[in-house]
């Protein structure tokens, strides 16, 4: 659509050699609005409207069963949330599971991408293999991991036992449970991130490596001084996406619970914000409080992404 509407105008402008007039573009622009309208209609119906409605509901005392009886409570739900031990527990769990899963995941992905960027026998096979976990259904993957981490019959505890190490309660103890969930996340997303990094790597000018090699840089020095700076935008993208993903973590901990309950273990040891929101809304029937949690999560994600970007920008300036 760009070519059809914009090109004659552009040709005209070049021949006359004078700045574009806004009016000359408005007809094309109007057609463009028609083209993008379907997206924005869907966006408005499934994103903007739910956002606004959620905000509205979060200011009311609402139960699912009595949805038509909403009582205005102002910011009481937010006050309740911020003074609520369940919220802070879920917040801490979300942060720790996010860190345990995202940091190793991105580092490993970077390493794999670096390796796969070399000429390697069976490179396509490895690249496809990397994407397999991502293409596997979350439920199927989690079921396998539950079996692996089963405290009675799991392969991992069996191996620990064989090595004369103490058995670990992967379900009931806080850190092992969080680690187990992080491992599911890592398993699923490392390959995906590696491919993103690989795409970024292939955009890095190969002559820079040659030049660095001529200057006497070894593999590690090349990685640090050519690969990393070249990949910066890609890395920032991956970090931002992982941050958003971590903050919304829901399916893995829900399915990891033996009865698929949203309470994140009997002591809430792996309840994330996503699970808490679900529990408040669907198990406890309190839609107002759940909506407040949803909006608080939204703000937390915005803040986390902003912090990411600020750090990235500052480093960029320094570099």
């Amino acid at each position: 659509m760009v070519t059809i509407t914009a090109e004659p105008a552009a040709g005209e402008e070049i021949s006359r050699r004078r700045p574009r007039r806004p009016r000359a573009r408005s007809r094309g622009s109007r057609i463009a609005y028609v083209y993008i309208l379907p997206f924005f209609v869907v966006f408005a119906a499934f994103s903007v409207y739910p956002w606004l409605d959620t905000a509205w509901v979060s200011l009311h005392d609402v139960r699912l069963s009595t949805y038509d009886q909403q009582t205005w409570v102002g910011l009481a739900n937010y006050r309740n949330l911020l003074t609520n031990s369940f919220f802070w527990n879920a917040f801490r769990n979300t942060v720790t599971i996010g860190i345990i899963s995202a940091v190793p995941q991105l580092c490993i992905a970077l390493g794999i991408a670096h390796l796969l960027n070399h000429k390697l026998r069976g490179r396509t096979f490895f690249r496809v293999a990397l994407l397999m976990p991502y293409a596997t259904s979350l439920a199927a993957a989690t079921v396998i991991f539950i079996e692996l981490f089963d405290p009675r019959t799991g392969l991992i505890d069996w191996a620990l036992h064989a090595l004369h190490l103490p058995r670990v309660d992967w379900q009931g103890s806080k850190w092992p449970a969080q680690f187990a969930i992080s491992s599911i996340v890592m398993w699923r997303w490392t390959g995906y991130n590696a491919l993103i990094f690989l795409a970024g790597l292939q955009a890095v000018d190969q002559e820079l490596y040659a030049a660095a090699a001529v200057d006497g840089a070894g593999k590690w020095a090349q990685f640090r001084h050519v690969t990393l700076p070249g990949l910066r935008p890609t890395i920032i993208f991956a970090i931002v996406v992982s941050t958003i993903g971590s903050a919304q973590l829901f399916g893995e901990p829900l399915l990891y619970s033996p009865q698929h309950l949203p309470d994140g273990g009997t002591q809430g040891q792996y309840q994330t914000l996503g699970l808490l929101m679900y529990q408040q809304g669907w198990a406890n029937d309190r839609l107002g409080l759940a909506s407040a949690t949803a909006w608080t999560m939204f703000v937390i994600i915005l803040l986390a992404v902003l912090v990411n970007l600020l750090i990235a920008r500052r480093r960029q300036r320094r570099a």
């Binding site: 806004p22 622009s29 609005y33 309208l37 209609v41 408005a44 903007v48 409207y49």
Partner: peptide, 18 residues
């Protein structure tokens, strides 16, 4: 696309429709 006013109008329309 320049002209924020028009953009706002379009998204408002979409919103109201939804």
């Amino acid at each position: 696309l320049r002209g924020t006013r028009r953009r706002t109008a379009a998204s408002m329309l979409a919103l109201v429709t939804a």
